Simulated scan of single mutants.
Amino acid sequence: MSFAVPNAPLARGNRVHPNPLVPHRADPQIHRHTDGFYYFTATHPDYDRIVLRRSRTLAGLATADESVIWRAHPTGDMGAHIWAPELHRADDSWYVYFAAAPAEDEWAIRVWVLENTNPDPFQGSWTEKGRIETAWDTFSLDATTFTHRGTRYLAWAQQDPTREGHNTAILLSAMANPWTLTGHQVILSAPEYDWECAGHQVNEGPYVLQRGGRIFLTYSASATDHRYCVGLLTADADAELLDPAAWSKSPVPVFTSSAWAGVYGPGHNAFTVAEDGETDVLVYHARSYQEIDGEPLDDPNRHTRIQTFGWKPDGTPDLGAPVAETVKESA
């Protein structure tokens, strides 16, 4: 992996990738697969469907055709608030983890899973594997999965019913298979610093990056307005990941709004790699203005953005600051 200049715009040759990359797509994820394609998914602003795009280049995702692979149910479970899908390859199948609520109780949000056994996620059929059963039957969302030393883990955000005024914490569990948790479910991080409790007490949107004998877990904090920001947990690769004491939390956010760049509320990030296979890329959403009229979740102008990032001398990721908008080009 290269040590890219943290605040430089993502470039390939002399071309600058457009930012925003995909307008009106929050909670983005870009997965670079072994087939050479970048696969993109994100929250659709209508909160009623799961979409995929793919391209051989990151810039190409901006204009790639979008396919609806699944739609919300008209009634009952998985009928409302279809949020934060993530696409993962596991056990020779594709899986999408997403948040959804019953159509008749739209804030009873839980994590659900789709499976496609076709090698091409745009082909075959998507089967509903059901809800991921957690120890607490409470508000939960933003699931992501990763493997470490032969064990698959799920990290997600969930309301801790023992904490008054608390919205969500970051939890971790091992998995028996890609849709079933097993063993202990532990809290890795709960809102404690002021920057995690601005507007709402929130830790959400976890995503994992492994490098240099350490595991880094980023997450987003506070309300989904200009105060939204990214925090960082770090664990040694030799540690017991299900021991909360193995993880250290940065006392300050590692990625925040930039008035200079005109980028507000950056968060719900993911990671990928540029076309050279070495340059690290941060994927996130943000708005281009600070003031929001009404409820932030009703504002559709969270746009997907990408930029390169580097590494600090101590081996931790240096996400830098959001870059300003660029002039859009064709892929």
Rank of each mutant, 00 (worst) to 15 (best):
D194S: 11
Y219D: 02
T41K: 13
D77E: 15
W83S: 07
Y47Q: 14
S220I: 01
Y97P: 03
P74N: 12
I132H: 12
G262R: 09
A190P: 01
L188Y: 04
A155L: 12
E106S: 14
R12D: 13
A270D: 12
Q159F: 00
S258R: 03
A176W: 09
V113C: 11
Y284W: 03
Q307I: 02
S67N: 11
D142W: 08
Q158Y: 09
Q201D: 13
H200T: 12
P253Q: 06
L52F: 07
G262A: 03
L209I: 05
Y38T: 05
R227P: 04
V252G: 02
Y153A: 04
L114V: 02
R149L: 11
S140H: 11
T151V: 11
T326N: 09
A198I: 11
T127I: 14
W179F: 15
V68R: 08
P251D: 00
G212I: 00
R54C: 07
H148D: 03
R15L: 14
S222C: 02
T134Y: 12
H285C: 06
G294Y: 03
V5G: 08
D314A: 08
A270C: 09
Q185E: 15
E196N: 02
L114W: 06
R152E: 13
I215P: 03
E133M: 14
P317K: 09
E66K: 01
D194K: 04
W126E: 02
G294E: 04
N7M: 02
L141C: 10
R214I: 06
A72T: 03
D35V: 05
W195Q: 00
